[in-house]
Amino acid sequence: MSEYREIIKNLIQLNLLTKNSGEEIINEIALNLYNEENYHLTERDTFYKLPIVIRDIVLIINLDTELNMQGILGFLENSTGLFLNDTIETLQRIQAKEDYEILKSIKSILEQNNVSTQDLRNNVNNQIKYSISTFSETHSSKYNDMVSEISEVADKLYLYNGDRNLFDYLIKYVDTNKDNLVEGLNN
């Protein structure tokens, strides 16, 4: 498990995992996640070596960041969208039932249109660097109906509803699973 410690050392120090609350752990990881030395964490080989609780924190922070910056379409077409299935599973684990169902519905819309997040990412990667374009220009206007449907479903996400906060679920989940995480890192 020392491999875990080496991977997460730039995200959060082990002693902070031991003594801090779930909220403090999430805040510390959020502060460090986008530092250059942590860019490798979302590479698949590295990401799946992270303890599941850390992966879940990273996925929720990435989801929230993308939704706030670029909305659901930005989430789906950026590298974060490549982890759509993992993000859905995380929402289920943290018991964010409404958002779990919403992302499952969005995944279903993509599948009905034979579109994967990898397809969307490939289209983005094929753009001229630093070009500014609309979703339709990047991916094709044939997806306009799909985009409308996804946007309508996404309007029900936590970000647009004051009645729930995704981080409340995440904090409770981290508080509940913190001891197992620390124990796993110490073995």
Rank of each mutant, 00 (worst) to 15 (best):
R44N: 10
N144R: 09
K9D: 08
E23H: 07
Q112H: 01
L157E: 08
D155K: 14
N114R: 06
N15C: 01
K107F: 10
N68D: 12
I12L: 06
G162F: 10
Y34K: 05
I102L: 13
E98H: 05
K107I: 04
E111L: 13
N165L: 14
N10L: 09
D99R: 05
I29T: 05
N114C: 07
T80A: 13
Y143M: 08
I128L: 14
N122A: 10
S108L: 15
N144W: 05
N10I: 02
V53W: 11
S116A: 10
D56R: 13
L73A: 03
N161P: 00
Q112S: 02
I52K: 13
T42V: 15
E28T: 15
E183T: 06
I57N: 09
L31G: 06
L59I: 10
N85H: 14
S133K: 00
L84R: 00
S131D: 14
Y39G: 02
Q127C: 05
F167Q: 01
I109H: 12
I26M: 07
E43V: 12
D168Q: 11
G162L: 12
E152N: 02
L33Q: 05
L120R: 02
N180A: 14
E3P: 00
L59K: 10
L63S: 03
V58W: 06
E152I: 00
V58Q: 11
T80R: 08
S108V: 01
E149M: 11
Y48W: 12
F75A: 04
L41Y: 06
E37F: 13
L16T: 00
S131I: 04
L67E: 06
I8K: 02
F167V: 04
F75V: 01
L33M: 09
L157S: 09
L67Q: 05
G74Q: 04
L76S: 04
K49V: 07
E111G: 00
I61L: 13
L73T: 00
E28A: 15
E37H: 12
L16S: 02
T134H: 02
G184V: 00
N62H: 13
Y158H: 01
K97S: 13
F167P: 02
I54A: 13
Q70Y: 14
L82F: 07
V58I: 15
A154D: 08
N180R: 11
L33W: 08
L166Y: 00
T117D: 07
N187W: 03
I25M: 07
K104Y: 08
F167C: 04
